[in-house]
C-alpha cells in the first residue's frame, strides 16, 4: 500500500515530541478518523529554527508529520506557509489516494502553529 519512502519515514520519524516554551503551537484534529496532531515551532528572525510534532494517527499521518516538519525547518514563515500537501506527498514518493487527507493534517498543523505565533507576537 505504501511506498518505501513512506515506510522509511514512518519507521524513523524525525522531529517527534514537543518543545517547551514554543513560540507557536498548532493543534488540528481530523474528524473523519479521529486523529490528532500537535505542532510546536520556535521562531527567530522570521525563521522557523526548530519544529516538533506529536501525532496520533496512522502510518501516513506519522510519515507526513515527519516529512512536512523536516521541510519547513529553517524556512521563513512565508516559505513555510507555501508548503502544500502535494509537495509533501511527492517528497514521500506519493501517498495512496485515500490517505491524502493525512498529509493535509500535517500542513494544517504547521499553518496553525504559525498563526498562533503571529497572534502571540502581535500582542507583545
Amino acid at each position: 500500500m505504501y511506498s518505501d519512502k513512506v515506510m522509511n519515514e514512518f519507521k524513523k520519524p524525525k522531529n517527534m515530541g514537543k518543545i517547551e516554551n514554543a513560540d507557536g503551537i498548532g493543534t488540528v484534529g481530523n474528524p473523519v478518523c479521529g486523529d490528532m496532531l500537535k505542532v510546536y515551532i520556535k521562531v527567530k528572525d522570521n525563521k522557523i529554527t526548530d519544529v516538533k510534532v506529536e501525532t496520533f494517527g496512522c502510518v501516513s499521518a506519522i510519515a507526513t508529520s515527519s516529512k512536512a516538519t523536516e521541510m519547513v525547518k529553517g524556512k521563513t514563515i512565508e516559505e513555510a506557509l507555501e508548503l502544500s500537501k502535494d509537495e509533501v506527498a511527492k517528497e514521500l514518493g506519493g501517498l495512496p489516494p485515500i490517505k491524502m487527507h493525512c498529509s493535509v493534517l500535517a500542513i494544517d498543523g504547521i499553518r496553525k502553529s504559525i498563526e498562533d505565533y503571529k497572534k502571540k507576537n502581535k500582542k507583545q
Partner: peptide, 11 residues
Amino acid sequence: IVEKLRKMSSI
C-alpha cells in the same frame, strides 16, 4: 512498540 507510539502521540 506501544511505548514508542505513545511517545510520539498527541493524545
